[in-house]
Write a protein that binds this DNA or RNA. Structure first.
Lengths: 159, 159
DNA sequence: TATTGTTATACTCTATAACTATA
DNA sequence: TATAGTTATAGAGTATAACAATA
């Protein structure tokens, strides 16, 4: 007797499709939720400031971690080394980040933000935080906090 | 006084970078959590059954929604029409789905699974559910349920 | 020899525009 | 005219392999 009972809202948004077993799959629910947040990012910061989500994240991680290396950025974002090189090339070309050879290990590089990069990422962060808060109004403060904490807990399970 | 106090685990996984304000951004936490679930999917079903995440989701949505149309699939997955066409082409080429003209509206198509498609998606679902459960053991049953429900609530905010 | 990072190249995925056929 | 779906084409993003410099 497959899918006997089912909640009335056990559906995908737009399409109003029956999710069935997908309802209990974390990967699927993450992807569905990300459709919303990707739209929020694009509207609040991506389009007005010409930033891709990954570019924003790189800028913010550099902003919070002084003299970070491309290698550590690649690991944090689960990207390959050539991948991070290309993004840093673009950001450097726009005058948002600086790459300097490490003095202790001349193979490595220290990445930092320019004034312009700091200003841009600050504005982007402000915009996205505000729009997320606005869009997530139907969740209580407790629900938003709980959601972020649980996601953080999941993210930290990465080896 | 920027980022005054900060919890000891306010860090990204692998890189152990300071997330700072990113900690409170839903879009970022979703992306970080998805790195884990994408790995779980690939290991449990993607590689052994030669399925992309999007292919698995299409198969499962078709499985749960009889005679669904490509248009509705496209909306549910936030894809363009040419995008869904290509994925359905591939799945049909592998003998996993069937496309038949609708009798009531001859522009539309009814998508359904073949026996082979049903068997494959069932196996994939079983594999992924089992591995997610295994990987998420450090979360309590209540936490896993709460996380899925909150994500579903966020996903349904899509207009 | 191993590590950090770049370059070269090809592949996957996606998007837009133009098209066919039905309504 | 509008809608469902396809085809054609180009672009964005990513991965692998080969490389240079340093440890």
């Amino acid at each position: 007797m497959p899918h006997a009972k089912r909640a009335a809202d056990d559906l995908t948004p737009l399409g109003k499709l029956d999710e069935g077993a997908l309802h209990g799959l974390l990967g699927y629910q993450l992807a569905q939720a990300a459709i919303l947040t990707t739209g929020v990012f694009t509207h609040a910061a991506g389009q007005p400031l010409e930033l891709r989500p990954v570019e924003f994240t790189i800028l913010q991680l550099v902003n919070e971690n002084a003299d970070i290396t491309p290698g550590r950025l690649a690991k944090a974002l689960a990207m390959t080394a050539p991948g991070i090189t290309i993004w840093l090339d673009r950001l450097e070309g726009r005058g948002l980040v600086l790459r300097e050879r490490s003095t202790t290990d001349r193979r490595a590089q220290n990445v930092s933000l320019t004034r312009s990069g700091q200003a841009l990422v600050s504005q982007a962060l402000k915009n996205v935080l505000a729009e997320e808060r606005s869009v997530l109004q139907s969740l209580s403060e407790g629900e938003r906090t709980m959601l972020l904490e649980l996601l953080h807990k999941v993210a930290r399970l990465r080896k």
